[in-house]
Amino acid sequence: MNIFRLLGDLSHLLAIIILLLKIWRTRSCAGVSGKSQILFALVFTTRYLDLFTNFISMYNSAMKLIYLVCSYATVFLMYFKFKATYDSNHDTFRMEFLVVPVGGLAFLVNHDFTPLEILWTFSIYLEAVAILPQLFMISKTGEAETITSHYLFALGSYRALYIVNWVFRFYTEGFFDLIAIVAGCVQTILYCDFFYLYITKVLKGKQLTLPA
């Protein structure tokens, strides 16, 4: 464990908690893409299948459990408890356009052609693009609540910090996982546009609006 990865995990945890609290306390999921949340729940499900078979550390197991519980809780709140506030008219990104190509790629490009490894690879590729429905929804509505932009900033920062972690581990342990690195770079690049808007607008106290 290194500081970059720890900060990345905490940033990821912060993002997940921010979103869950936003929905729970405002009792509304306006402006949040339910499809992205479903994809994230799928990412954690396919990545943490070894939760009970491959114990790494208390921290690792605890975080995996928290991610799984929070992501499913968020999906539950959005599609059941606060369903009336779910903005399905703007959350129209076709998930199958992401899941099918990612599923195919996971079969073709992986480290080891075993079910667990292919599912892990699928989760890495899927996580890279899982935010697209959310970014698409914001581009359609043309704006995002400030709390949602904080959520996105924390979520985008997590994988950017992981990239620093991978560089650090390469120089200190000679370790690198090309699949995770390439997917992590794609994932972070998708946030660049948003990072620019966040830093130039939200940090100046303005509302996050996309140029229509």
Binding site: D9, H12, N54, I56, M63, Y67, Y162, G174, D177, I179
Partner: peptide
């Protein structure tokens, strides 16, 4: 040297 991706990351 590419080691198998360690799954110690979240």
């Amino acid at each position: 040297n590419e080691k198998l991706p360690s799954k110690d990351e979240l």
